[in-house]
Design a protein around this nucleic acid. Structure first.
Length: 107
DNA sequence: CTCTTGACCGACG
DNA sequence: CCGTCGGCCAAGA
């Protein structure tokens, strides 16, 4: 059995990340807030960068708080392509109507 | 255990 | 608008 050397924090990150519905996007900050650490957005980015579950985990649905794609280990252009395919319009490395497509975990 | 790095954010000039 | 600084969190060497 594959021993996943992941911490609770990482598991939580991937777990919430996989909760993002198709055609929607979220931000590192919102993701961090969802897990109870609104200031751990940095750690979230770190976990996603390692993303051992990629592409199982839709990390491409996570963008910066400004709606910018930020970074993507597979290439920003690929991210744009995927997002557009999902139904999210992207232009100039930024998500269009980003605020309107942000998925909030807080409920 | 200490130091550095990182897919970040917000504020300041 | 752009560049820079500080802060916060976790993982790796």
């Amino acid at each position: 059995m594959a021993n996943l050397e992941l911490t609770d924090f990482q598991r939580k990150t991937y777990e919430y990340c996989s909760k993002i519905p198709k055609g929607k996007v979220t931000t590192y900050k919102h993701l961090a807030i969802a897990m109870g650490k609104p200031k751990a957005f940095r750690a979230v980015g770190n976990a996603l960068n390692k993303n051992p579950f990629a592409p199982k985990v839709p990390c491409h649905r996570v963008v910066s708080s400004d709606g910018t794609l930020g970074g993507f280990a597979y290439g920003s252009e690929s991210k744009i392509k995927i997002l557009k395919k999902e139904g999210v319009d992207v232009a100039d490395n930024k998500v269009i109507n980003f605020q309107n497509k942000v998925f909030s975990f807080k409920k």
